[in-house]
């Protein structure tokens, strides 16, 4: 027996995919900005992974190989990220959805579900219910997003918001925090996208909003079985 259940309301799906576009643009352009004068000596992001235009064409147009375009992308997508992210968080808190779906997170459950996940034993029959590792990673990526937001503001306005920059020690400290925040988000993305591809039902849920699941009275629904 199966039934159709709504997993994600339209507003959640919309803000999720807008955020995905904004984040990917910010990462691609941010890597290009990084490459110009790398924070870490000798480390460059590969050319194919950065956003900013074909180097030769861009040089003819702009006198640089895409740095200016990367800045344009970065400072445009930041508004999408900021407005869309704020709207999503307000919605999540106001409806109680974040609290309901993401909390509580008990360390014991995280340890248990992590072990189960490594053995591919976690149940994913009902995409409305998150396991503890999933909950932790969602809360974690929101915290990482807040870190890139605050450190980004500190890099953008180190004089007007000098107090904020001072929280990161100094300008280079804010740059490092921005880099670490980005790295955490990229790490999340790698896991998040891989798991979504492994459990395609979650992709359907985040796109169509509803999925067909087995009716819950079946014994195979027991988690961990």
């Amino acid at each position: 027996m199966t039934e159709t259940v709504t997993v994600h309301p339209l507003f959640v799906r919309l803000t999720h995919w807008i955020n995905a576009v904004a984040i990917i643009i910010m990462i691609g352009s941010g890597w290009h900005i990084f490459n110009n004068v790398p924070l870490i000596d000798g480390f460059h992001f590969p050319r194919w992974a950065v956003l900013g235009g074909d180097p030769e064409l861009t040089y003819k147009l702009n006198k640089d190989t895409g740095f200016g375009n990367a800045l344009l992308w970065h400072f445009a997508a930041m508004w999408v990220f900021f407005i869309n992210g704020t709207a999503a968080l307000i919605y999540g808190f106001a409806t109680g959805r974040l609290r309901r779906n993401w909390l509580p997170i008990r360390p014991r459950d995280v340890a248990h579900d992590f072990r189960e996940a490594l053995r591919f034993h976690l149940a994913h029959d009902d995409p409305r219910i998150y396991n503890a590792v999933q909950k932790l990673s969602y809360v974690g990526v929101v915290l990482a997003a807040l870190l890139v937001f605050a450190s980004g503001l500190a890099i953008w306005k180190p004089v007007q918001f000098s107090w904020l920059t001072a929280l990161f020690y100094d300008f280079q400290g804010a740059r490092l925090a921005h880099f670490i925040g980005m790295s955490l988000i990229v790490l999340f993305l790698l896991v998040h996208v891989s798991l979504a591809l492994l459990v395609p039902k979650t992709l359907v849920a985040m796109t169509k909003g509803s999925v067909r699941i087995a009716t819950p009275d079946r014994p195979s629904m027991q988690p961990g079985e």
């Binding site: 990917i24 643009i25 990462i27 691609g28 050319r47 194919w48 992974a49 950065v50 956003l51 900013g52 235009g53 074909d54 064409l57 861009t58 147009l61 895409g66 375009n69 990367a70 344009l72 992308w73």
Partner: peptide, 12 residues
Amino acid sequence: ALTLLSGCDISN
């Protein structure tokens, strides 16, 4: 296509 393939980079 947006970021992973520079051939499709639409910046210009």
